[in-house]
Design a protein around this nucleic acid. Structure first.
Lengths: 196, 196
DNA sequence: AGTTTTTATTTACGTTACGTATCGTAATTA
DNA sequence: TAATTACGATACGTAACGTAAATAAAAACT
């Protein structure tokens, strides 16, 4: 590594401006929705100049993802209990989170995003895949505890449990509700060798 | 019902203009990609006027979906064989189809589309859900033939098999390839009570 | 044949958002 | 105090949207 900060010369970037812009973006997202979240709107509402916004985020899509990440609820503390209980608790929480309008916004943001940007990767990991990772933890713990055998093809199993949530959210062919969450868990457990 | 076509008075809508516009849209989609498919571009390339285009499709997003449907490969004829063979054949075909760039375009179109328009519904059924419906057919046939028991929660099972394809396509966290297709079928069969 | 109706094409327009450039000012270091 | 860098304001050029107005063409009615 180099010596980090040799000497920052001129006026430092304003943390305040950055956070005012981000806060305005989150507000717009909540109050007016995805379609209204434009750089101009954020500039006007926050009082931060457009060039400053562009100095902080590469484009509108990245600002949107930043705002979405900002507006996420804190991750649910992991419940303790049987594999079935824990899993159902988590899936149910995801269904609840997706039930809001934010669900569609997330899908839209992901689809629109520039595939291989740093921001997109972060968004994907923290928003889309975080639930799936929690699920991985729950399952591997259950395996360690001897509740189930060590699953093979864990990635495929995880996809089969978590993808349908995203699928129903985006495609909307069938409801994304509690009964669905329960059925998903039941079937998922069967994949893990546990019949309930 | 009324008497259908009493007498269409003035100049009839030009089928030619419509299909020229659609063809141009498909071309642009193939050659330049989703982002370049704009009404202006289609008008210029096809020689069809913008108002005429708007008379045929409500907006740019609908034209895009129409073009995507137009450019779809003919549906694979259903192979005959065991449940496992038939299912694997079909899933593999979907993976192949999704592997092209068109895969991403489909996801983008769906995410961007106006949720409850006629066109969106058609697009969803013919592009996103058609594979899933073929799967339903394969499974119910196998059940009728006594190869498996009649599955309960068929909708959930279908989602668990078909959603992961879409998920990997859009999220891109893991490859959408043949090994994945095979693993998916194996796990799917287990859900259907068949172990191989 | 002439009138009416409807569409096609052309052209222009107003709107919105993007992303950038310019400018004078403010904040910080040397 | 000078140099440097970011700030806010403003204006700009570009692109695409979707609509309007005007003229020409194609068909049905009389």
């Amino acid at each position: 590594m180099s010596q980090g900060k040799p000497n920052p010369r001129g006026r430092p970037p304003s943390k305040a401006a950055r956070s005012r812009a981000l806060a305005a973006a989150v507000q717009i997202l909540m109050e007016e929705g995805f379609g209204r979240l434009t750089i101009d709107a954020v500039a006007i509402r926050s009082g931060v100049g457009k060039p400053t916004i562009y100095r902080n985020w590469a484009n509108a899509s990245e600002l949107t993802m930043a705002a979405l990440m900002e507006s996420l609820p804190a991750t649910t503390p992991q419940a303790t209990g049987s594999l079935a209980e824990t899993l159902e608790h988590q899936i149910t929480a995801i269904v609840t989170a997706f039930a809001t309008t934010r669900g569609r916004q997330i899908g839209l943001a992901l689809a629109t995003a520039d595939r291989d940007s740093e921001m997109t990767r972060a968004f994907r990991n923290r928003v889309i895949l975080s639930g799936r990772e929690v699920g991985r933890g729950i399952i591997t713990e259950a395996a360690k505890a001897g509740e189930i055998a060590a699953p093979e093809d864990i990635e495929v199993v995880l996809d089969m449990i978590y993808a349908p949530l995203f699928y129903r959210l985006l495609v909307g062919h069938l409801p994304l509700d509690q009964p669905f969450a329960r059925a998903l868990v039941t079937k998922g457990l069967r994949l893990l060798g546990q019949v309930r």
